[in-house]
Design a protein around this nucleic acid. Structure first.
Lengths: 342, 342
DNA sequence: TATTTTCGTGTAATCGATTACATCTTAATT
DNA sequence: AATTAAGATGTAATCGATTACACGAAAATA
């Protein structure tokens, strides 16, 4: 339909060269002011639009950045992406989304696809941190494309990261439970091969030790992040000789499962049992019995990742910057653990 | 670092032309089998990667598609995007995300940006349906780029859409409330300029009329989609001379607000008052008092939109196909309206 | 006036892949 | 053996924008 207008069309109409048109449009100071104005006016009149693909080919920069997440339909990742998009949009970058569904194979694929599509940077939450094979990441770094990990990170030279202080998150949640008078606090831990879960666990443990409480191995249950996993886990704990009177769960969903099961058993929350979760999922505050949870400020995490990218993208090629940003977690205290307030 | 290998490098090494290399790699039947094998082997050995930007420039197709949503950090939109991504990924398309934040200006901007970035198609949920000015959409259509509306649609010639039957959604939710014995059912309606909300309202109204109930104007409250809006709205209703005994809310959040307020006033749900929402937000099923809601099958909606796009993208340029897909809503009956079950 | 700058544009290569057309070998046909 | 067809590859244009280099004209300097 509407034929494409190129700088050649403008040049032809004005009896000048495409080079001049290009320069005029790019505010090259060598162009006579009158020419520049004429070109700009004519371009507007002809409804000229720069072909970004041609520009991308010439410059080697696509103005696209890639974001890889396990899945997009989780509040946390969606919020991070929102943050990234909002920070990068004013700079003219478009955000390309990829999902791994927790599959390392997909993760590798996505990395290669994005590089092949000539993205100018990649931000991702690592799926497989145990994998010793970092070749896909090296592939990215070799192309001199900034790579930034957020939330789930991995120690790789040349890769920046934006994470929250999970240790502190575990610590403050546990400390809060202690302050509320809980005497024996259990922990639902996630996949310990992931730094984030390990750190939450370590924070939990440290808080216990710092406050003269004994750490018991049997109080630590490894759970998936789901309601059912939480139910199973709490049942294991309740069958112990001396069951705990509180849980710090590394997952809000598991925390919810525990709460549902506790209610079923007519155990009063928070009087007899306190629960704190992690992630501050939207539902935690909507519940009638709202759930205390550690907020990871995903929006901020996304924006920060974007900023780190922007810092790196224009730096001279040779200098590898490696920036580690650690955001502070924030405890949102709600009914599930509030014996004093509410 | 790793220098870029092009078909010219391969050609040079093999003492043939880039044209031959290109043909060999593209399985052009004119190439001798032995040459093809040699080229493919060499390409692999040299770690050649096709430059998608060059391909995109030449072919005019970027293999990117754009998705425009009001915001990404909503379960509904995130799920739709997930569906789109999963359906399109196997076909080699990348998904670019844009947000409008409900701003018509941003919507226009995004449309132009995406077209300028040469996307091969655009899927979007319309922000401003009242705007008579469809120039941005026409701009897209003029470029012969498939445009598909999902959920929030607008009648424009040449634009396909994937929506759910909101009328039916409103109808079955209301019918359900009637079946549970509710005698006077109110409605929280959203922005009536949006088809989706208007249709939910019309479905509600029709269900009342079909079942011998009277429709009362004062039972219809226009609310925003938020917890607070729901609280305000229910208070208006409770102050009426004859307050209703049920609400069909076009928003889950408003439904939640109403429920919280009703509980505060010690009104028993569902015995004295029933509530049904719309969207099937995750929290509706997590609540202790789980909330009945109409599911919009966002994942399916995304996949369907992607399929419609795939159907259109390869069609001969001149034929404008316009496909209207309407998905069936599904009522998820939960405690907030179940007098009989549970 | 002669010479050197400065200024504004044009020329042509480049980014990397694709492809219509031309060309040169072979193999098949009469 | 002469002619034609088929097969394989090369040549060069193209997609659209950018930019190093070249060049002519005007302005500044000696």
């Amino acid at each position: 339909m509407s034929e494409k207008i190129t700088i050649y069309d403008i040049a032809e109409k004005l009896n000048i060269t495409a080079a001049t048109v290009s320069r005029a449009l790019n505010n090259n100071p060598k162009i006579k002011e009158s020419t520049r104005e004429l070109v700009i006016k004519t371009a507007a009149a002809m409804n000229y639009k720069q072909n970004k693909l041609a520009l991308a080919l010439k410059s080697g920069r696509s103005n696209n950045i890639g974001v890889i997440v396990p899945r997009i339909d989780s509040n946390f990742f969606a919020s991070v992406i929102r943050g990234i998009e909002e920070e990068l949009h004013p700079h003219g970058y478009q955000v390309i989304i990829c999902q791994t569904h927790e599959s390392p194979k997909r993760e590798n694929e996505n990395l290669h696809t994005l590089i092949d599509a000539q993205v100018d940077g990649i931000m991702m939450s690592v799926t497989d941190v145990t994998d010793e094979n970092n070749s896909a990441f090296q592939y990215v770094l070799n192309k001199n494309v900034p790579l930034i990990f957020f939330d789930r990170s991995k120690h790789i030279e040349g890769v920046s990261s934006v994470t929250i202080n999970d240790f502190k998150g575990g610590y403050i949640a546990t400390k809060h439970l202690i302050d509320e008078g809980c005497k024996s606090i259990a922990h639902f831990s996630g996949d310990q091969s992931l730094e984030i879960f390990k750190n939450r666990f370590l924070g939990y443990k440290q808080a216990l030790l710092d406050n003269g409480m004994t750490f018991k191995e049997e109080y630590v249950i490894r759970t998936r992040s789901s309601v059912d996993a939480g139910k199973e886990a709490i049942n294991i704990l309740l069958r112990l000789e001396t069951p705990p009177d509180a849980i710090f769960s590394s997952s809000d969903f598991a925390a919810l499962g525990a709460i549902q099961e506790l209610k079923d058993k007519n155990i009063n929350i928070p009087k007899e049992f306190c629960v704190a979760g992690f992630s501050n999922e939207p539902f935690t505050k909507f519940m009638e019995l709202s759930i205390t949870s550690v907020d990871q400020s995903p929006l901020e995490m996304g924006k920060m990742s974007a900023r780190v990218f922007l810092e790196q993208v224009d730096k001279t090629e040779t200098i590898k910057i490696e920036k580690k940003v650690v955001l502070a977690p924030e405890l949102h205290i709600r009914k599930s653990s509030s014996r004093t307030t509410f």
